[in-house]
Computed example of a mutant assay.
Amino acid sequence: MEVEQLSRLTKSSKNKLFYGVCSGIAEHFDIHPLGVRILFISLPASVVLYFILAFHLPEKHSSLY
């Protein structure tokens, strides 16, 4: 019996532009990071949300890959 490990939302360390928030969200949901970045740019309140997530999401460590 195989136990599936739940993935945790983290900041990306390999495909980031600023803090890795959008890339981390994209990796979590298995989608392209460009779509998440466009969504964050197009929504006015998302700038505040981005910075909140940038300081509260943990970094993805190599042991979690």
Rank of each mutant, 00 (worst) to 15 (best):
M1V: 13
E2P: 06
V3C: 03
V3H: 12
E4H: 06
E4Y: 08
L6N: 06
L6G: 11
S7K: 05
S7W: 00
T10I: 04
S12V: 01
S12F: 00
S12I: 00
S13W: 08
S13A: 13
K14I: 12
N15M: 05
N15Q: 08
K16L: 08
K16S: 06
L17K: 15
L17Q: 12
F18H: 06
Y19G: 12
Y19E: 05
V21Y: 02
V21L: 03
C22L: 02
C22K: 02
C22Q: 13
S23R: 00
G24E: 02
G24R: 00
A26P: 03
A26L: 02
E27V: 07
E27W: 00
H28R: 03
H28P: 00
H28W: 02
F29C: 05
F29I: 15
F29D: 04
F29Y: 14
D30I: 07
I31K: 05
I31T: 07
I31F: 04
H32Q: 14
P33N: 01
L34Q: 11
L34G: 09
V36I: 07
L39I: 09
L39Q: 12
F40V: 11
F40M: 08
I41H: 15
L43G: 06
L43S: 14
P44M: 05
A45R: 13
A45P: 12
V48A: 14
L49W: 10
L49V: 15
Y50F: 07
F51T: 02
F51Q: 07
I52V: 14
I52A: 13
L53W: 04
L53I: 03
A54H: 01
F55Q: 11
H56I: 13
P58I: 03
K60E: 05
H61D: 09
H61I: 11
S62C: 04
S63W: 06
L64D: 15
